[in-house]
Amino acid sequence: MLELVNISKKFKQTYAVKNMNMFMERGEIVGLLGPNGAGKSTAISIMSSLVEPTAGEVYFDNRSILKNPTSFRKVAGIVPQEIALYEDLTAEENLRFFGRIYQIKGKQLQKRIEDVLQIIGLADRKKEVVKTYSGGMKRRLNIGVALLHEPELLIMDEPTVGIDAQSRKYILETVKQLNKEMNVTILYTSHYMEEVEYLCNRIYIMDKGNLIAAGTKEEINRILSGEKSIVIKASHLTNPFIYELKTYPLVNSVDVMDKQITVMVSKEVNLFKDLIAMADEANIELISVNIKTPTLEDVFLHLTGRALRD
């Protein structure tokens, strides 16, 4: 349905997106995961025909959207990262304005507005101006506007940043529902891996403009499938202790964050006793030691040496 081929976007000296390849099939929910500044929004602007890439092509049903954006725009709905609404207008007025811009008229427009308000759960608040809404309500309306023209493809750029848990849950359910009941193909962008893990069949992971991993959830988890992670929390850390860990023969990798260390080891390795001994020797008081099977977060950590969320 949608295909990105060798997309690059350069701003002055630096690449915001570099050599990105990606595809989406009809009916999928695809996740695009990456920390802030990874290049997700830039990639979305390109694949939604707003920005021309420095190099590469974007195809929608095998036709270049760069050369012919019109037919693509008719069936694509974009939910921008920004709250792209008029804060001084009501939900209904916003929907009516954008609906008219989409050339929907009269009774049909009225019906679409009602339907969308129903989907995003704002029917009872439709007469209130947007600036009185909570962050979550604004996010929902932001999605609603992109649904007016009944798109086949919905591209969502971080639709859940900075909102309460309840709205977040509502949005996640709505996304699932849109995909299931209306067969909308969805690209879901986030820096929350649990959202992506919950919604998506296939996942792309981006960092610093590069795709660093791609595949189904299982495939990606398999990157670390032979391993498990040990998360150590300590009152303080010393360099000799970290050095000791890093050079310890059975340890595959060590990541240090604040007073927390994540150590990756092979599944069968039991490091527990050795760890206690090492900590004792270094005069370090351990607060907790957790052993987990790896998550997307760990994959990201493993691939980049950094946590997803900062």
């Binding site: 602007s45 939604s48 025909s49 707003l50 019109t70 725009r73 008719k74 694509a76 974009i78 921008p80 990262q81 920004e82 709250i83 792209a84 609404l85 008029y86 954008f98 811009i101 989409y102 050339q103 506007v145 023209h149």
Partner: peptide, 14 residues
């Protein structure tokens, strides 16, 4: 433009 409303208008093929 800043709030992406303009982008939305463009995406609506205006």
């Amino acid at each position: 433009k800043q709030s992406f409303v303009f982008a939305r208008i463009i995406l609506a093929n205006m």
